[in-house]
């Protein structure tokens, strides 16, 4: 499983392909974390956790355990 958001590297941009809605807080979906939107990893804290993301223009931080439930397809190096 290399295609989750938890595996994105700093600066990389990806397309969200699917989210496991049971494991993801609704709040995160409402902030734009939905299939079809782009996501960029802006910064990570030590141990890659939490992760500071730019999802569809929204800047937010989530824990790695949450990022594991978001499937992505890498697009490019930012």
């Amino acid at each position: 499983m290399e295609n989750t958001l938890a595996h994105l590297k700093r600066g990389e941009i990806a397309l969200i392909t699917d989210v496991s809605s049971i494991h993801i807080p609704l709040k995160l979906l409402e902030m734009g974390c939905l299939p079809g939107n782009t996501v960029q990893l802006v910064q990570v804290a030590p141990f890659q956790d939490p992760m500071y993301l730019n999802i569809n223009g929204s800047h937010l931080a989530i824990r790695k355990e949450t990022a594991m439930h978001i499937l992505i397809e890498k697009v490019s190096h930012g």
Binding site: P25, K27, L28, V42, Y52, H59, L60, A61, I62, R63
Partner: peptide
């Protein structure tokens, strides 16, 4: 208690 962590990083 729902333990989730989503923090907006404002401008």
């Amino acid at each position: 208690s729902k333990s989730f962590f989503v923090v907006e990083m404002p401008n």
